[in-house]
């Protein structure tokens, strides 16, 4: 069959986009020598910062899961005045420039604001602390979890829940026996997206907590101080470990479905 010109235009655009995304990444990943990579991963500071990146992102996803799931369910199931407004507010963190997020969080956590005062009385510090990093990552990651999970809930017919209720299941049992088993895949995708977004955050974190250093901050610091060559190996390790974790998670969960 002879293809229309439009087909060839689409294919060409596709190739350009693939190259645009992949070439810089491949170049970066293959730039450092094996020896250098080895040396880098033996550096305790590097390991600590990568680990900090991963577990703060994980915590942000966990908080999003706990706080976001009920809200996602509410938004998927009910129509109420101001629902659009709530949905727009949820999307706000996606649109705000990252350093602004950091500044905004510091302004409520500062001692001049009542939340900051309560926090300081409780002995909780946001500025320059792991708590601060997790707060920022949750702020930027939450919309991704909420939206993915909401879409998942919307894909489940409310009639399944209605039938479950009529058969004697409470709202709670219905959620755990019907809604959750049908929505967990969307929730997992939401968690992965939330995590991925959190791991990649730099601009907001650098304002709230330069130290302790998460991996993107360390990559930036090394780039500033020593140049491209010293920042690349850390970047390679961060990207590799994150990708491996996400792939493992997906493989594990997809495997379960087949059973």
């Amino acid at each position: 069959m002879k293809h229309e010109p439009f087909f060839w235009i689409s294919v060409s655009c596709g190739i350009v986009i693939m190259a645009f995304i992949l070439l810089p990444l491949i170049q970066m990943m293959s730039a450092p020598s094996v020896g250098m990579l080895k040396e880098t991963i033996q550096d305790k500071d590097v390991v600590r910062s990568i680990w900090l990146s991963i577990y703060t992102a994980g915590l942000a996803a966990l908080i999003s899961f706990v706080l976001g799931t009920p809200l996602a369910y509410l938004l998927a199931r009910s129509a109420f005045r101001g629902k659009r407004l709530v949905e727009s507010i949820i999307d706000l963190p996606i649109a705000i420039p990252h350093p602004v997020v950091g500044i905004a969080i510091l302004s409520v956590a500062g001692k001049n604001y009542w939340i900051g005062q309560i926090l300081s009385e409780l002995g909780i510090r946001i500025m320059g602390s792991v708590t601060g990093i997790v707060t920022v990552l949750t702020f930027v990651g939450l919309p991704f979890y909420l939206n993915a999970t909401k879409t998942g809930f919307e894909g489940i017919s409310p009639r399944l829940e209605k039938v479950s209720r009529s058969l004697g299941a409470s709202l709670f049992s219905t959620f755990f026996r019907i809604t959750f088993p049908l929505a967990w895949r969307s929730m997992l995708i939401g968690l992965i997206m939330c995590c991925a977004r959190a791991i990649s955050e730099f601009g907001a974190v650098v304002i709230v907590a330069y130290h302790p250093m998460i991996a993107p901050v360390m990559i930036y610091e090394r780039f500033e101080a020593y140049g491209l060559k010293y920042s690349q190996p850390v970047a390679v390790w961060l990207v590799s470990i994150s990708l491996i974790l996400f792939f493992l998670l997906r493989i594990l969960t997809l495997h379960k479905v087949k059973e």
Partner: peptide, 17 residues
């Protein structure tokens, strides 16, 4: 609440789990 009524419902689109 629906679960305390002893009333079952069958829909046109079956609504099987």
């Amino acid at each position: 609440p629906p679960e305390k009524r002893g009333i079952s419902i069958v829909y046109q689109d079956y609504a099987l789990f």
